[in-house]
Every structure is written in structure tokens, then in C-alpha cells.
Design a protein around this nucleic acid. Sequence first.
RNA 1: GGUCCCAUCGUCUAGUGGCCUAGGACGUUGGCCUCUCACGCCGAAAACACGGGUUCGAACCCCGUUGGGACCA
Length: 471
Amino acid sequence: MNQVRVRFAPSPTGFLHVGGARTALFNWLFARHSKGKFFLRIEDTDLSRSTDEAIEAIFDGMRWLGLDWDEWEASETNPVRQTARFEIYREKVETLLAEGKAYRCYCSPDELAARRKEALEARKVPRYDGRCRLLTAPDPERPAAVRFKASSEGEIVVDDMVKGEVVFDSRTVDDLIIMRSDGSPTYNFCVVVDDVDMQISHVIRGDDHLNNTPRQIQLYEALGYTQPRFGHLSMILGADKSRLSKRHGATAVQQYRDEGYLPEAMVNYLVRLGWSHKDQELFTLPEMIEKFSMAHVGSSAAIFNPDKLLWMNANYIKTGDAKRIAQLLRPHLEGLGVDAGQCDPDHLLRVVKALRERSRTLKEMAESAFYFFSDKISFDDKAKKFLTVENLPILGAVRQKLEGVPFEHDPLQEAFRSISESMDKKLAKIAQPVRAAVTGKTVSPGIFDVLEILGKEKALERLDDQIDALS
RNA sequence: GGUCCCAUCGUCUAGUGGCCUAGGACGUUGGCCUCUCACGCCGAAAACACGGGUUCGAACCCCGUUGGGACCA
């Protein structure tokens, strides 16, 4: 039985796109499920766009999501980089040329463009007419591109793992340029050479490549290799059903990290975009690996739904390990100017526990947590409405009562109950002004929790401030 | 324009010829809980694109139409 070997082959664009992330995830799950190998290959032949930073951004995104990759045995670089393999592509081109499976084409890009335009105007299919195929005496001095001699015999059948049998008429496949006149190899060619070299068993990629598949299959044949199995994943679309892009909002996974999303939420959201296991929505990583199967990958495109991702994130914030959430919260607190390095881990943990059910992102949590870490609290308009002379007696009574109360949930609750009774006011009438005074807001965790976490000293100080201001 | 892919609630999906009066989840919405906001719990509205076949029976199989998407660019 042959080992499963798959790869994720992004081109470095400066970030990891959510669509790419899902492709990577499905490849990764497929490999880990079947105890195979998962490789990362950087398609950086387009040198103008491929900077080291852009490549680093992909690693960064992959690591954040927890998608680790294996080292390809035969490579000096890990992950594999196409720019390190230019010589190999050139050799293969030479081989095809020598075997008569490819030929030099002297048509300039301008000529080709002109002919394409003509064909289009004449309402004909714009495809290369193969005129340079017939040249008998190639001139090695003249700059030339190299074209692959496509066969136009019969049909090419792709037995796709997600789309089923897809049949192409060979006559629709024209002679593909495999090396440009400047000596640079082209995308479709490099992909095949790499996948052959890396002994990739299953090519799982976006279905925007489905139409490239027949010509790639012909290349496999010409190169004398058996083809891998293909699986073409549907696209991720924006709300308007067009391909997901920046105008639909955040498309880079790093952006979600910066917005306070948890990687497990992102992964869980992404895995449910196109894959399902009965009615189940929530999966841990080991569960995904165990249950993942290409058989349950859907074939229709999916719209990226930020609301569901948000819900997913809220869920993981609510149920995740509180200590870890606390660690992840730190940078977001720093972002608000809180010196999170100085704060007590226990204190931070209590804050997280108080806020986790009311925060959908870490960023939201940090914002809600601000008054626990800084005395520079601001009072919003709704809160100010509770800080009135009419409520002064309430604040006063609370202030006095709390002096002698231990700052723990139950005693605080008891204290508030007794004030509530003696003043004959509902608890809400008492809690809201106090909440406004100590947090500056009308929304917070339960008031007893807030006071406990804040501690006696700070709480009384804030109450005093308000009492003074109103007196 | 050609080629290819796709089509179940607004969205993600379950469904592989009888378990479907179409299930779950997000969102929306009514209520309960309640010191605020949330969480949680209970309930509601909401879909098989259309038209033909095949079959005793079709969301499911076949054909066509329409609509969307991708690639050629």
C-alpha cells in the first residue's frame, strides 16, 4: 500500500488567505488521518512578488493554525522552494525537447495577443494554432518559448475525489508554453515536475485548477509518470457570491488572529466549510483527524460567514482552558496600553473567568477588561445617568456597608441584600449605580464578581471618587 | 465566446430511491432565567431553482432550462 503524500503549494502573496488555509487544512487532515506526509511547497517562481517576508507570512499563518508540515526527504530547503529548483525544470524541458515532445515557438507575446484578439472578434475560440510545431529547422540563437505538444486524441478523464468523473475533450487542450522565452518555466509545468519529484499521491487543491488538470495529465504522460489522484475543492465565496477577496472584509488568517480570534475557532470554522460529519459542528483537532474523509467533502462553493466564525470563536473562548486564554489575552491588553507583563497571573485569570461568557473575541475581552487593570477609567453616557445626586444615598450606603465586608462573592452578595432590604429598593437599583461608579459602564460581569476582582481598596476608592464628585 | 464545475432554509450543512410532515448549526425572532450585559434553557418563522422523464415511489437517478462560479485571460 502506497503512502499518502500530499502538499499545500501556496504562492507567497504576503499573507495566508482563508481559502488557502482551508486547502492546507484539508490536505493536512487527509495526511494526518492516513498517517501520510504533508509537505509545504512555496511556489515562488514569480520573483517579483515573492519576498522573504511574504514567505514568512505563510509559515506564520500555518504555525498559528497548528498545521505542521513534514520535510521532503530530497530537498535541501524545508519547505520546498521552487526557486531552488530552476535547474531541474530546465533539464526536464531539455528532455522533452530532445524527445520531440516539446518544440520551440518563436511567436512573440504581441503576436499571440493580436491573434487572440482576432479570434475573439471573429467569435472563434482563441487557442494557439500550433504553427511553430511545423518548423523543421529551429534556430537556437533566436529567443523562443518552449511549448508542449499536446495530444488532441480522444478524451482526458479526471477521476476527481470530490467532483467525480470529469471529462475533457482533448481537442480543447492546446499547446501549453512550458518555458518562456526568458528561460523561466511556467506554472503548470513546474507543478507537475514538482509533484512527480515529490511523489505526491493526491493533489488536493482549489477547483480553480480543475481546468488545468487535463494538460497536467498530458504532461505526466509525456514525462512518463503515473498521475496522482486529484481532488478539487470548491471555492470560498464572499457574501455576494463572488470569489472571496479583500472587499469582503478580512481574508488573511493573521488578520483574524490580530482581531482576537482563537486558532481552534478558525480551524473548526474552516473545516465545516465544505466538509461535514453528520450534524456535528464542534470538533477538536484529534477528532477532526480521526473523522476526516474526502468522501464527505461537498462539491458546491461555500459563502464565508463571519457571524458563524464569531459564534465559533465565542464558543472556544467560553470553553477553552482559562489559563491559555489569559495568555492569549495579554497582547490585546498591551494593545490598549495595559502593562500586561506586570499583572498578576491570578488576577488575570479571574478576569478571564468573569468575562469569557460575554466576549466573542479576545479583543472584545480586553476592551471589557480595561477597568480591571487601569484606574484611568472613562464613564460612558449611559453610566453617567446612574451617577446622580438622587443615587448618592445608595452609593453612600454601599460605601459604608462595604467597609466592613470581606471582598468575596458571598459576603458581598449578603451585604447588597441587606442594603436592598433596608432601603426597600430592588437589587438592580443598587447594583447599577455601583457598577457605573466602579466600572464606568452599565454592562459588566455580576457586580459581586466585579467587586471581588477589583478588590476592596480600588473599589472603595472609586466609590469615594464618585461620592465626592456628587457631593 | 469556449471549456469545466455547482445548485436543500438568508448562510454553513444532514440527506446516497421509501426512515422526509426534510434534521442540525449560525443568524433572525418570541419567551424563561436575571443586579446590567451576556451565558444557558424552551419555542417560532425559514429551504429541496424550474420543467420534463425513469420508478409502485424521487431532495436523492437521467435529460433540458435557468441561475451562479472558475479557467482560458
